[in-house]
Design a protein around this nucleic acid. Sequence first.
DNA 1: AACGCGGGGGA
DNA 2: TCCCCAGCGTT
Length: 344
Amino acid sequence: MVFSQTLTNWYSINKRDLPWRNTVEPYRIWLSEIILQQTQIKQGLPYYQAFVNAYPDVKKLADAPQDHVLKLWQGLGYYSRARNLHETAKHVAYNLNGNFPDSYKDLLKLKGVGDYTASAIASICYNEKKAVLDGNVYRVLSRYFGVDEPINTSKGFKVFKALAQEQLDSNNPANYNQAIMDFGATQCTPKKVQCNNCPLSESCVAYRKDLVDVLPVKLKAKKPKKKYYNFLVYLSTDNKTFLEQRTGKGIWKGLYQFPLLETEKPITHTDLKKQIANNQKQAFDLRLFNTKDIVHKLSHQHLHTKFWIIDVQELSENSILISELKNYPVPVLIEKFIEAFNFS
DNA sequence: AACGCGGGGGA
DNA sequence: TCCCCAGCGTT
């Protein structure tokens, strides 16, 4: 009680003014929550604005082509969020008559909506008594109550979810949930934590025992895997090129890229030239755009990338105009190349 | 229970 | 360089 009361008092003074806080419309709350999964507000905010502008309601989103949705999502990462967002919009618009589910239990059935997001929407839109558990909440709870259970295990989830639910201010779940998250994001931060002016420090276990920089405990992630990507940038005399859409299970599903040759090790100019010659009759000229590998770092992969330019006379039917490149959703790695190469 | 999935930013 | 971020779906 003291804990939640202090948090909501703190929130009434320090609450950040954010666009999705001026509404309880489920569509907008849902949209903001999907965008903000594993994403800081500073990064997600312009995407939220762009989506609201392009798709003011769920039916507009449902009726958009997937390429347009992915294009708006471009650069935000975790693209399954965009695909699930689109699929759920169609489901809500056409199977649920445009109405979002109005309970935690039913929200959980939506694709892309897990425990956190269902709790957030249920509490914010319908004031259901469901405590949210995100990175901020883990941090605040583990520090204040001195819980050293690792947070990234299934046991850790259960322990903290129960603690979170216990602390929930059942009189105002919507306000409490946003208070504890804002508190974690701006006051009880991962680093440079502001204990000096913290309203909870007196009774905070981590503060009293000098464990603030130890909690929360998190099991270490695996090292990222090294991969070698060779993008084949075909270029015809009439300014056309090839683009392919990524399918299957890996990264960037649904996005477009220049034809990709992945190798076990770095490939030489000579070897690549032979491979390409085996696959086509037409004469071509091969040159390497970047002399040093471009290393694109993702949380789980390091992509050592070469962009090869293949000059040819002409390209077959399914090629596209260089001027159309900007219409396709592409990974940041590809976008940066297009910018740098400038197709002069 | 473990793993794969992006990209930006802070220290 | 490492860690973190309004997590989720699949295996």
